[in-house]
Write a protein that binds this DNA or RNA. Structure first.
Lengths: 111, 111
DNA sequence: GACAGTTCATTCCGTTCA
DNA sequence: TGAACGGAATGAACTGTC
């Protein structure tokens, strides 16, 4: 009989983040899964990708320490992006996934 | 608590190779046996076969020296595949396009 | 039992468009 | 901006063969 190993209190440290609640780490909205390495909602996922792709540079109109919530997340892009980075979202995972950097069949490409 | 089941300590020398711990040499996850010539988990087994069949060419979005773990293995295909090869997984053990052609080289086994 | 291949639900990416 | 969506990659569970 194989003992069914359920997620118990004895978890390896690196398994920890797989069990985080489905709450967006950026704004607290309902999260839909891991996006660019962090548990986030669809909104913050899209916001982060857009920001990275266009290499956006935002400036906080306040004092640079806004608390981001589901309702005010659109108000300060600077602090929202900062929060994204703080919780671990990584630009390296934008644009570089799922076959984009993968050669088609024969490697007869750009030389 | 998960009891760490290690293979019996006293083994004949010639069984040494087959007696490596059931830990995936690529990511450290629980291994299910030898796959394509190396002790790996089901995930890395499937990843290696798919990569070979599709002749994928990956590029590391970081510096090419990612440490692969059970939890981040999906993040860098380049380093994961590199690790597969490093621990001895061989493409020759992967069956290519069914029916089109057989193994290009004979099985290479412990001589 | 060991290890090939196969299946398919799930994860998570980019795109679309209101 | 973000909900909805289509699709590729993943991996646990499975079948087939020796």
């Amino acid at each position: 009989m194989e003992s069914t190993v359920v997620s118990t209190s004895t978890q390896a440290p690196d398994e920890f983040d797989r069990n985080v609640p489905r709450i967006c780490g950026v704004c607290g909205d309902k999260a839909t899964g891991f996006h660019f390495n962090a548990m986030t909602c669809e909104g913050c996922k899209g916001f982060f990708r857009r920001s990275m792709k266009r290499k956006a540079a935002f400036t906080c109109p306040f004092n640079g320490s806004c608390t981001i919530t589901k309702d005010n997340r659109r108000h300060c892009q600077a602090c929202r992006l900062k929060r994204c980075v703080d919780i671990g979202m990584m630009k390296e995972f934008v644009q570089y996934s799922r076959g984009l950097h993968m050669d088609p069949s024969p490697p007869i490409l750009f030389l």
